[in-house]
């Protein structure tokens, strides 16, 4: 799993793009957490802090018209496809200028124009739905590939198994990415799963290769995702990738995650994808000034998105009654 050697077949621009993604996602999640603690983000929020390399690496390997399906922990995956930070931050704050007009919230981020086909908050439910999008691409001959992200906890729900089987039988152009952050909500995944690797050890049951990647290494994720997407686009069917990673924070909201052993947390913090990747880029000869400039640009973008979100109007009260039906309304009787 651990990639000790530095991959050589990634060009400089791609690496800088990956770095820009990881930095931007980190700054965004830190800000989302702060706004939650300040009471501006209501309800709940599930952050990808520490896990950004996966969303970044996969998104960089995708074509603009490819499709993403996210979970309720979907800020990073939504942003990584190019969804503007303003619209995502405003959605977290429940404002009219949010990507879903304030009707989706943190757990249901969607931006169809960026290929983000929704964030689904029932564990495992979106794997079968993502299959449908892949089936549609196959029927339409569009060449689109669908990527479906989910957590380790989803591997123990029925929908995961139904979806993997159908995807394999129908040879669908889809890539399933399991973000194994070692905890299903608050419980260690190992305590409730019959196998060591919750996704990879199940792959064989569906005729798929067991693939485990270092989810804290943007290069490794990018290469693995690129290969899987290429196979899917070539008609060779689905891939299941298990990306090992770690949440820096708790499951949701203000959960400090203090059910996790200190030494485990420390070990993973030492493998924080952001400073690790910066270190790698410096070793590869990229100037610190160039990386600093990227960091500054991303910090500015988060600041601007925060201001735009705070300044955004509350949703029109009428919008509570729109878009139940395709005619735009909510009427069920004459």
């Amino acid at each position: 799993m651990t990639t000790t050697e530095v991959p050589t077949d990634i060009d400089r621009d791609t690496r800088l793009a990956l770095y820009r993604q990881v930095v931007g996602l980190r700054r965004f999640e830190e800000r989302a957490h702060r706004l939650f603690m300040e009471g501006l983000v209501k309800g709940t929020s599930h952050l990808s802090t520490g896990m950004e390399a996966i969303a970044a690496g996969v998104a960089e390997a995708m074509r603009p018209d490819d499709l993403t399906f996210c979970t309720y922990r979907g800020h990073a995956h939504t942003l990584a496809r190019g969804t503007p930070m303003d619209g995502v931050m405003a959605e977290l704050l429940g404002r009219a200028n949010g990507v879903c007009g304030g009707k989706g919230g943190s757990m249901h981020l969607t931006s169809v124009e960026h290929g983000v086909m929704g964030s689904y908050a029932i564990i495992g439910a979106h794997l079968p739905i993502a299959n449908g999008a892949a089936w549609s691409a196959q029927l339409r001959g569009s060449g689109q590939v669908t990527v479906c992200f989910f957590g380790d906890g989803a591997t123990n729900i029925g929908a995961f198994h139904e979806a993997l089987n159908l995807a394999a039988v129908w040879k669908l152009p889809i890539v399933f990415v399991c973000e194994n952050n070692l905890y299903m909500e608050y419980t260690p995944i190992g305590e409730v799963t019959a196998v060591e690797h919750p996704a990879a050890d199940r792959a064989g049951a569906y005729g798929l290769e067991p693939i485990i990647v270092d989810g804290n290494d943007p290069d490794a994720v990018y290469l693995e995702a690129s290969a899987a997407i290429e196979r899917a686009r070539a008609g060779e069917g689905p891939t299941l990738i298990e990306a090992k990673t770690y949440r820096h924070g708790g499951h949701s909201r203000a959960d400090p995650g203090d059910y996790r052993p200190e030494e485990e947390v420390d070990a993973w913090l030492a493998r924080d994808p952001l400073p690790m990747y910066r270190e790698r880029l410096l070793e590869l000869g990229i100037d610190a000034e160039e990386l600093d400039a990227i960091e500054q640009e991303r910090q500015d973008a988060v600041d601007a998105a925060t201001e735009a979100a705070k300044a955004g109007p509350l949703p029109d009260p009428e919008s509570a009654f729109t878009d139940v039906w395709a005619d735009g309304g909510s009427s069920w009787r004459n």
Partner: peptide, 15 residues
């Protein structure tokens, strides 16, 4: 679940 999910995803994308 696979049947209804496949139908939903396909319906969302032009079928």
């Amino acid at each position: 679940e696979a049947i209804i999910g496949a139908a939903m995803g396909a319906a969302m994308t032009g079928m």
